[in-house]
């Protein structure tokens, strides 16, 4: 395939006797949004964790721009530009929103063994941070302490931190989880705005969002990749529907 920026070949992950990821092969196209869907426990987060380097696969390879990065850890892949956001929001609560993003900008900008100047007063870093904050809709909250943000705002901040790292590939784990409808809508808007500039791998339960954002949808069931294709194909695919819904003709409860 052409333009694949991130590829997984025969990825398998076992936890004891449990096979969480079962021989998954997929390729992520550059500057496109690739959604991973499937029922709870299908291994979406586990797969994402292997792509991000948090979990080491039991078998299989992961290629980034054609280079084998299977053995690189979370930090190593972050330095290459593969960034993940977490299901459980993790931002620095005592920092202001601005500082949260400035730190990320600063990390992107080089090592942190500089002991004098406050990064928030370095014009280049401050501008970059303000830019990202505008883009993620947090422009009005710059000086608010992150700890007092609402849930949805925290998710936005989480996204902002990832964007500040100027990622080549952005792995998003349920960015809409726990959001109210209005917040989810705003997040969908935000992500839609990023689609042209970033490569995004998205794990999400909100199907409205998935089908609106994704260029490619892959369906996981019981750790196996059962289908991968354009959203319309996936919607129309009976096998996918059956597998995803359980068995026979059943709804998702």
């Amino acid at each position: 395939m052409t333009d694949a920026i991130l590829e997984a070949h025969g990825l398998t992950k076992r936890f004891g006797g449990l096979i969480a990821t079962d021989d998954v092969t997929l390729s992520i196209q550059e500057r496109a949004c690739h959604a991973l869907i499937g029922p709870n426990g299908a291994g979406k987060t586990t797969l994402l964790s292997q792509l991000s380097g948090e979990l080491r696969p039991s078998a299989g390879r992961i290629l980034f721009e054609g280079r084998d990065v299977t053995m690189a850890g979370l930090g190593g892949r972050a330095r290459l530009g593969i960034l993940r956001s977490f299901q459980i929001t993790s931002v620095c609560d005592d920092f202001s929103v601005f500082d949260n993003v400035v730190v990320a900008c600063q990390i992107k900008n080089g090592h942190g063994f500089r002991f004098w100047e406050a990064p928030r007063h370095v014009p280049a870093l401050a501008d970059a941070a303000r830019n990202v904050l505008e883009r993620t809709g947090l422009g009005d909250l710059t000086h608010v302490e992150a700890g007092v943000l609402s849930h949805g705002q925290r998710r936005q901040l989480e996204l902002a931190i990832a964007l500040a790292m100027q990622p080549r590939v952005l792995l998003l784990d349920e960015p809409m989880a726990g959001m109210g409808p209005a917040e989810a809508e705003r997040m969908t808007e935000l992500l839609a705005g990023l689609r042209a500039d970033y490569t995004v791998v998205l794990v999400e339960h909100d199907m409205d969002a998935v089908f609106r954002l994704a260029d490619t949808v892959s369906v996981l069931v019981g750790g196996r990749l059962v289908a991968s294709g354009r959203p319309e194909e996936i919607k129309a695919n009976d096998a996918v529907r059956d597998a995803y819904l359980g068995h026979e003709e059943e709804g998702v409860a």
Binding site: P39, N40, L245, G246, E248, E250, G251, V252, A253
Partner: peptide, 9 residues
């Protein structure tokens, strides 16, 4: 019970 298996439910 919470389950996704609607038929059984």
């Amino acid at each position: 019970v919470i389950d996704r298996n609607l038929r059984q439910m």
